[in-house]
């Protein structure tokens, strides 16, 4: 059942013009950033090699090319997810699911997986650009895999956040503004410098703090747990919301 719903969601995404427009803009961004950072690496190559801990192409591109793309995916994931439930409410197609033998968890998971699968293709595209360099130079594959995993975990959390806000309203625009506002707040927490103890704890909710290690090749259990828990939390809240609609009638 989940696979059927995921397939439907992916298919509908790829039939939508706005998906292709966003994908084209992202691809242009990947290309521009990739070439710009590659040029920077070539101009700094001798200085980087002279350091005590020389930085190779993969290490340089991971931090200067892939890490900024995490912010791009933070903004794009809610754009992909915004229609998941909002459109169903607005076009009154939600009754199909409510009157069918489909559980709220299957519906939410199916839609999440469908959207995430589409975004995964874009992540693989941007990581693939770096992988192409393997034909010419040595690539640090474990570092590239680590960075790709970080991008995927971050995108999964942002997608789940977008799906959750989409369950709350029939207006896609409100869903996207709310989810992007929350995610950007999480990004800003990472750069804030708070002194008091409770705020220190809040900094643990910062996405970039948990993401940085992946781009430097350090995969920590606490970072993986953060993204998995955040994704699970948003999906859980979505399931509760969908279930409660039978009671509230809205």
């Amino acid at each position: 059942m989940i696979a059927t719903i995921a397939g439907l969601e992916s298919r509908r995404l790829f039939r939508s013009a706005h998906t292709w427009v966003m994908a084209a803009l992202l691809a242009a961004l990947f290309g521009f950033l990739f070439l710009k950072q590659l040029e920077s690496f070539l101009s700094l190559q001798s200085a980087l090699a002279a350091q005590d801990h020389p930085i190779g192409l993969t290490g340089f591109m991971s931090v200067r090319y892939l890490e900024p793309l995490a912010l791009a995916f933070t903004l794009v994931a809610p754009l992909f997810a915004m229609r998941s439930f909002s459109d169903e409410y607005r076009q009154q197609t939600f009754a199909l699911w409510q009157s069918s033998p489909v559980s709220a968890s299957s519906l939410v998971l199916g839609k999440f997986i469908g959207i995430f699968a589409a975004l995964t293709l874009l992540i693989l595209l941007c990581a693939g650009m770096l992988l192409i360099m393997k034909a010419f130079v040595d690539i640090d594959l474990p570092l590239l895999l680590s960075a790709t995993l970080g991008l995927m975990l971050c995108t999964a959390t942002c997608t789940a956040c977008g799906v959750y806000f989409s369950t709350l309203t029939q207006h896609s625009l409100i869903a996207i503004v709310a989810s992007i506002a929350l995610l950007l707040f999480s990004w800003l927490l990472g750069s804030a410098n708070f002194a008091s103890l409770p705020i220190q704890f809040i900094r643990e909710l910062s996405i970039p703090n948990h993401l940085r290690g992946f781009f430097q090749g350090y995969i920590q259990t606490r970072d993986i747990a953060f993204f998995l828990l955040a994704t699970g939390l948003f999906l859980g809240l979505s399931i509760i919301k969908i279930d409660s609609m039978r009671h509230t009638g809205q």
């Binding site: 059942m1 059927t4 719903i5 439907l8 509908r12 039939r15 939508s16 076009q91 009154q92 197609t93 939600f94 009754a95 199909l96 699911w97 009157s99 069918s100 033998p101 489909v102």
Partner: peptide, 26 residues
Amino acid sequence: GYLPDQPPVYDDLRVHEYLTLAGKIR
């Protein structure tokens, strides 16, 4: 089977695709 006052159909799907979906979820 339930047909609400507003048919719950997806405008971007073809008729046969929609019926396949309706069958699969049942």
